[in-house]
Structure formats: structure tokens, C-alpha cells
């Protein structure tokens, strides 16, 4: 049986007032697609459920001076449909489209997805590759800006304090000419937690990769950046040979586990395959964009 008090504030002011002095018992609820299954599984202690869905200011997706800002309540459906995201962060739109199923996507929010901090969280690799920043607000209005690579600590663990709210997520529009790609590999095409997922953002000059940002999901205790692999790639032309060496290097950066979905060896192998594919796709797109004929 779940014992809970429930509040539904309609703005941030109301929210912080209603949780004052009770931060340690707060459980934020956005789309509820993680909260509900978790509550059913856990038989938790009494809590204060804070429904975020009435707070309109947390919904906005906008562009300001080369920075994209996404309210934490933006749903997967909204991200996938947003012109701004499709133009400036297509890998995030792609990840949003790949999460769960249409019903889930209508409810699941980006704030909930990263606060839940599953190693397989679908929006995490794109946000890592886009070098996003998580903006939070805690009790007594303390605000923080946390780079997404510092946000996750381990499976379902983040640097968030009790009662600390994600208000929005921002990322700078990648420098032109850039190219990106995202691949999610699961055991079926919908309703599948990924076996491996890859997101890459490349700054390209012709076939030459200036700068690479590579992120991976489901191959470590948390979503990760593949810094060594990025180094391996930067300053080189994208050729079969370079991709092969990237696929080798990436294996040193990951620590996949064996679970019901796949073995560690299989994940390691597929990470290499998907990385090559993602880089190849991005490189082709990069070439096309400098040719101006997307």
C-alpha cells in the first residue's frame, strides 16, 4: 500500500513553498512512466508526491542566441515534433522517437528520463554528445548548472539533491559545419530498452574530422562519453581504417555487463559495429552539408 500526500503546484513559486522543510520526503512526478512502476515494485515509505505537470513554464522549447533550451517537462512526442530540436539537435529528436511507444512518448518527459538516470536512458547519449547543461533549482531557490557528463553517477544515481528540481536543459547549437548521428539497437523496434545506443556529433571539414563528441548508452553503469575514441578520431579523415581503430579503442572505454538482454561480449562487439555505422552516417551527412545539398 502506498501512503502519500499529493500536491499539484501551478508555478515554481508555489512548488517551493509547498515543499519547504519537507525536501527529504519529496518525490517529483512528471509523466509518471517511471514513478508508477517503481512505486509498485518498491512498497516505499510515506512520501510527498509533487505533480509537476501543471507548471507551464517548465514546458518550453526555445532558441536564444545560439543556445537551445528545453523545459524539463517537454515530452518525447514534443521533442520529436519540435522544429527547433529537429534542426539543431536531430539526434535528440531521433532518440525521443525511439523511446518506448506512442503512449509512453506522450507522457515521458526529458527531465524524468535523465533524473531516472537509467544506464539505458534514451535521451542521455544525445545530450552528452551535444554537451548539454542541466539547470536545477533547489530549496531556498538555490540554482545550479551541471554539465551533463557530471550529472550521472551510477545506475539510477545522479548528483541531484533531495527536492532539487530540473528546470531546463540547454545545449549550444553545434558549430557549422557539423554532422551528427544516433543509433539505438534493441531486441525489437518499439518498447525496447536499448542493448546499445550511440550518439555522435562531428565537426567536419570535408572528410576531415576536427572535433568529435561520442556518447554511449547501456554499456557502462551510466551513460558515458567516449573521450579516448574521440581523441582517436580527431584530426583524421574518416576512412574504413580509422573507423576500425575507433571500434577497437571504444572497447577500452566501456564496461558492459551481461543481463537478460545481451551478454557483455555481445554488447562490446555491437558497440564497435554501431559506432562505425554512426560515424560513417555522420561523415556522409557532413560531406553532404558542406556540399550544400542535404
Amino acid at each position: 500500500m502506498i501512503e502519500a500526500e499529493y500536491v499539484a503546484p501551478s508555478n515554481l513559486g508555489e512548488l517551493f513553498k509547498s515543499i519547504e522543510g519537507r525536501a527529504e520526503r519529496v518525490k517529483f512526478v512528471a509523466g509518471c512512466t517511471n514513478v508508477l512502476p517503481d512505486l509498485r515494485a518498491q512498497n516505499p515509505a510515506p512520501m510527498l508526491l509533487v505533480d509537476l505537470t501543471g507548471i507551464e513554464e517548465l514546458r518550453r522549447i526555445e532558441e536564444n542566441n545560439g543556445v537551445i533550451s528545453i523545459g524539463s517537462l517537454a515530452t518525447m512526442t514534443e521533442l520529436a515534433a519540435s522544429e527547433i530540436i529537429r534542426t539543431h539537435g536531430p539526434i535528440l529528436a531521433s532518440a525521443a522517437r525511439a523511446l518506448g511507444n506512442p503512449l509512453t512518448r506522450n507522457r515521458a518527459t526529458i527531465g524524468g528520463n535523465i533524473a531516472d538516470a537509467s544506464p539505458a536512458a534514451d535521451t542521455a547519449p544525445p545530450l552528452l554528445a551535444l554537451e548539454a547543461t542541466i539547470h536545477t533549482e533547489g530549496a531556498s531557490h538555490a540554482k545550479r548548472e551541471i554539465p551533463v557528463e557530471e550529472f550521472f553517477i551510477g545506475p539510477n544515481q545522479t548528483v541531484l539533491n533531495q527536492g532539487e528540481l530540473i528546470t531546463r536543459i540547454t545545449f549550444p547549437i553545434p558549430k557549422d559545419p557539423s554532422a551528427s548521428s544516433h543509433i539505438k539497437f534493441g531486441l525489437r523496434n518499439a518498447m525496447a530498452i536499448s542493448v546499445v545506443s550511440v550518439a555522435v556529433v562531428l565537426e567536419m571539414q570535408g572528410n576531415l574530422c576536427h572535433r568529435a563528441r561520442i556518447a554511449l548508452g547501456s554499456v557502462a553503469p551510466k551513460p558515458i562519453r567516449a573521450y579516448l575514441t574521440e581523441k582517436e578520431l580527431e584530426g583524421r579523415k574518416i576512412t574504413e581504417e580509422v573507423l576500425e581503430s575507433c571500434a577497437e579503442v571504444v572497447k577500452k572505454e566501456i564496461s558492459p555487463i551481461t543481463d537478460i538482454r545481451a551478454s557483455a561480449q555481445y554488447r562490446e562487439h555491437v558497440t564497435g559495429v554501431l559506432l562505425k555505422r554512426a560515424l560513417w552516417q555522420a561523415a556522409r551527412e557532413g560531406e553532404n552539408s558542406t556540399n550544400g545539398n542535404i
Binding site: R188, N189, A190, M191, A192, I193, I260, R261
Partner: peptide
């Protein structure tokens, strides 16, 4: 059951498969 008796990890194909 290793799938945890849950449909998250007992999968059947859907229309998009």
C-alpha cells in the same frame, strides 16, 4: 524467471517489427 516476470524483458513482436 530471469525476465523478472515482467513484459519489459519478456518481449513479443509489435506491429513495427
Amino acid at each position: 524467471l530471469t525476465c523478472g516476470a515482467s513484459l519489459v524483458d519478456y518481449k513479443t513482436y509489435t506491429a513495427v517489427d
